[in-house]
Each structure stands twice: as C-alpha cells, then as structure tokens.
Amino acid sequence: MAAVVGRRRASGGGRRFALLTVAPATLLLVGISIFPLLWALRLSFMQDSLLSVATPHFIGVDNYAHLFHDPLFWSSLGVTAVFAVSVITIQLVAGLAIALALDRLPRYQQVIATILLIPSILSPSVVSFQWRQLFDYYSGPLNYFLGLLHLPLQGWTASARGALPALVLVDFWEWTPFMVLLMFAGIKSLPRSVFEAARIDGSSGWQVTIFQTIPLLRRVIAIAVILRLIGAFKIFDIIYSLTAGGPGTSTESLAFYTYVQGFRYFDLGYSTAMAFVTLILITVLARLILGFMERPIGRSVA
C-alpha cells in the first residue's frame, strides 16, 4: 500500500516537491563543480595566455597535440609515475605490516593510532621546512649521524639521482601513517570467526595473513591505493618547497609542471589541457585498480 501511495505521489505533486527538494543541491553542484569544469574544458581548447598580446581564441586540439610533443610534459609524467609507484608500493607494504603488528598489540592501540596521525595532519609546508632542515648538508641531523659513523656526507636533494628518492622518503614519512590507519581500520572490521576457523584448520599466522587477511582487505587496499595515487599525482607542495623541481627537471612532477605553465608562464589554455590529461589518467588508473580488486580471487576467500 505504502509503495502504491509513494508511486502515486511521485507521479503527481510529489514529483514537483522532489524536484524542488533536490534543486538547491543540484544548482550548487552545477554552480561550483560542473560549470567550472566545463569552463576549464573550454579553456583547454583555447590559446589563452594572460601575458600575451594575442586575444584568446579557439585553437581546437592544438594544446593537447602540443602536449604530446613537449619533452618536459613526458619527463614530468615519468617523474610522477616513478614517484607514484614508489610511494604507493612502499607505503602499502609498510602500512599493512605496521597495521598487522598494531592489531596484535594487546594494549595502547588507540594511543599509537592517534600518535601515528601527526605527520599526516601537519601542514605540507611545515613538513617541507622540517625536512629541509633534516637534509641540510652542514647542520642537518642526517649528515651529523653519517659523520659520526665516518660515512661520506650527502647532499640529499643535490643530485638528479638522489632528489626523487629524498622526496619519496618525505612522502613516506608523511603518508605511511595514513595508510597504517586505513589498514588498521580495515583489519578491525574483518569478521574474527574467519581467522579462528583458519587457525582451527591448522593455518599458521603467516598463512592467515596471506590467504585470509590480505584478500579480505582487498577493497580497503583498493581505496587506499586510489587515494594515494591521487595524492601522488597531485604532489606539488613538498616539491615546491624542497627542490623547486630540480636539479634540472629530476623532480618536476606533472602537477608542478602544470603549475609552472599556468602560474609562472600564465599559459592558461595549455596548463588546463595538461590538467585534463592528468584527470583522465587518474580516472583510468582508478578504474583499473577497482576492476582488479573486484575480481573473484580464489577459494580461500569464499
């Protein structure tokens, strides 16, 4: 009966009511999200440089075509890919390991989890400043300890080979705790009965982790990987503060290069095209990861 009434309402005055109810939210969404996105999409097909004498005009796909011939775009994409794969792999493995260890702690889990949050809630500029001090060649503690061990001092961000690993280290410090917390929350939400049954069947702790815990965590892992993938593709702040993209272009990420084109050269059309390519890349990768994680994966999880 209720369903019938509901259907009748939806087909009459109720529909207008429903539309009126969702209208403010829809308008807001269109106004602050969809309209700017469409405006930006239009801009990506324009020649529009704020410092140029030329009037902005439509140039079709020229900005996109230029991207594919721009060596700095490809090198920044390469830097971003290496950075993303490195941080996601290291943080996932470390985050999972620490979360599993944390789960086995009899006490102080909440206290440790709270402390772990600190790096992730610090402002990126503070994080960069603090690591700048840590990396300092003359007065940084890292080189101080190397000196104590009679090892050669390092210019941590001073070489094209060393700078990107240094940024990976900073990102590891900042975001691994976030990964730990996600994994820890995921582990806590798993049904304990599955693990008890596995143990009764004679599985070792290692086997339980590999064949039960990790497969059951796959959706959490997928979300964590996607979140960190987005973070890695957007990496800008620590690069801006620590290396400014250098030495050379060794740490110039896609986000940093987009910033340079947009806000240093004020080439709005080109930088917007770059931003859209980044958006497409992230969307495709996220879709692939979700698809991979949702595939059925063997009897042990059934």
Binding site: D136, L153, G155, W156, T157
Partner: peptide, 14 residues
Amino acid sequence: PPNILQIGYPELNE
C-alpha cells in the same frame, strides 16, 4: 661542496 645543486641564497651564505 658536494651539495652544490642544493645551494641557494641562504645555503651559499652558510
């Protein structure tokens, strides 16, 4: 110094 590519204005002073 080996960190020459890390050297900006304050580091050069230092």
